[in-house]
């Protein structure tokens, strides 16, 4: 009985957090949802619109922006997985063998992600500027100067590289922690049986890192889908050049704040609901698949 009473009172302690969560997460979420079902005249709510705002998302000219933006988000995710998380794993493994200065190196790798992505974005725009940038000035004599952010073919890969530069420390820390949790006896036993270090890595370390990989994958997915600040700083609100770096976040920003459309709130709320449903749904799915494997 005493236990039951204590459990009852323990719910009381959840109330402050729950109130904050309701005010800042649940309430806006439902307001956004309700906004998306109305038509708007500026900030004035007009009549009930049903699914009209959602139909507007699928109308020709808007869909022509939505699909490429979604595609770029997906490419960012793939790029992040291939480049950033692979490098992160490599750094973590390499650091696990370093004896001295491991902490210092970890901090150094992780440092860029403490800086605001907007700052990183503007910094790299200056570094990569074709008119004044030092990067091309250094590469010019080698014949390797590139348009970087100025050409649709190289812009998105450049964004992926900059994202990697900023975030590589994050998967590295997660993998480092996971590596530290693997008992060294496994590797020792394998080596006694004559396994090479590559075999030890592939057969023992990698399988035991699966839970960490699942976490990194899911976080990368959420990060890539919700990206805004960095691409905004690098390519502006239209995802320059020629929309090559346009993503859902920028599309939402444009629709909500820069379109001048009388029904901007309706359309952008519908887009926000779509983004939330899509990201939340995909994350749940991804998590289910990955957890089962891990």
């Amino acid at each position: 009985m005493a236990l039951g009473a204590r459990r009852g009172s323990s719910y009381l302690f959840l109330i402050p957090a729950f109130l904050l969560y309701s005010a800042f997460v649940i309430y806006p979420l439902f307001t956004g949802l309700s906004y998306s079902f109305f038509s708007w005249k500026g900030t004035l709510r007009a009549g009930f619109a049903g699914w009209d705002n959602y139909a507007g998302l699928l109308a020709g000219p808007f869909l022509d922006q939505l699909l490429p933006a979604l595609g770029h988000n997906a490419l960012l995710f793939v790029g992040t997985m291939l480049v950033q998380n692979t490098l992160g794993l490599a750094f973590a493994v390499a650091l696990s063998r370093v004896r001295r200065g491991k902490r210092a190196l970890q901090t150094m790798f992780a440092l860029p992600y403490l800086v605001n992505p907007l700052v990183i974005g503007y910094l790299w725009t200056l570094l990569l500027s074709p008119a004044f940038g030092p990067v091309n000035a250094l590469l010019e004599p080698l014949g390797l100067a590139m348009p970087w952010l100025g050409d649709p073919d190289t812009a998105l890969p450049t964004v992926i590289l900059i994202t990697t530069w900023q975030w590589v420390g994050f998967p590295m820390l997660l993998f480092s922690a996971a590596l530290g949790g693997i008992p060294p006896e496994y590797a020792e036993a394998a080596r006694t049986d004559g396994a090479s270090s590559w075999q030890v890595f592939l057969r023992i370390t990698l399988p035991l890192l699966k839970p960490a990989m699942a976490t990194v994958t899911i976080l990368s997915f959420i990060g890539s889908m919700g990206t805004f600040a960095l691409v905004y700083a690098l390519g502006g609100s239209n995802g320059a050049p020629a929309g090559a770096t346009d993503v859902l976040g920028l599309l939402f920003y444009r629709t909500a704040f820069a379109s001048g459309d009388v029904n901007a709130i309706g359309t952008s709320s519908a887009l926000a609901v779509f983004m939330f449903t899509f990201i939340f749904g995909s994350t749940l799915l991804l998590e289910r698949v990955l957890r089962r494997r891990a």
């Binding site: 808007f62 922006q65 649709p152 029904n263």
Partner: peptide, 23 residues
């Protein structure tokens, strides 16, 4: 001619960018 959603100004600015890139 900046009406529409996306506005014609946004559409055309992007089109001109593609033109400048030779696409």
């Amino acid at each position: 001619f900046a009406y529409g959603n996306p506005t014609s100004a946004t559409v055309f600015a992007k089109a001109l960018q593609e033109m400048l890139l030779g696409r």
